[in-house]
């Protein structure tokens, strides 16, 4: 899979995906509102404490909503330095699934 810093999806798509990540973190994972509200794409993953369990919920949300499959490697938090890289992977997979469906 290619990591492409958002080039495969529009800015609007990234905004929607980012909002959905926020939603999962708050509603499913109990991440405090103040952390999520202030979350930016430049934030470092290891400072947010997003481990593999939390990411399993984030990825499962997108799998179930968009009918696609992530690799378990995607759930490895060490794979991402920033939130932006996480959004890249989510956006890339969603774009790929949409392209396959067409």
């Amino acid at each position: 899979m290619t990591l492409n810093s958002g080039n495969s999806s529009s800015t609007a798509d990234r905004t929607v995906i980012f909002d959905e990540v926020r939603k999962v973190l708050v509603e499913q994972c109990g991440t405090p509102d103040d952390i999520v509200v202030n979350l930016t794409e430049q934030d470092l993953m290891d400072e947010l404490g997003l481990d593999s369990i939390t990411l399993a919920y984030v990825f499962t949300y997108f799998e179930q909503k968009h009918d696609l499959t992530f690799e378990n490697d995607d759930i490895d938090p060490l794979r991402y330095q920033t939130v932006s890289e996480l959004i890249d992977v989510l956006a890339g997979r969603i774009s790929e699934a949409a392209a396959e469906a067409r």
Binding site: E27, C29, G30, S52, A56, Y57, Y61, Q64, I75
Partner: peptide, 17 residues
């Protein structure tokens, strides 16, 4: 991993997931 989250998060949504 999701079941481990049930111990930790305890929100209703995680069970459905």
């Amino acid at each position: 991993l999701l079941l481990l989250g049930l111990h930790r998060f305890r929100s209703e949504g995680v069970y459905a997931m």
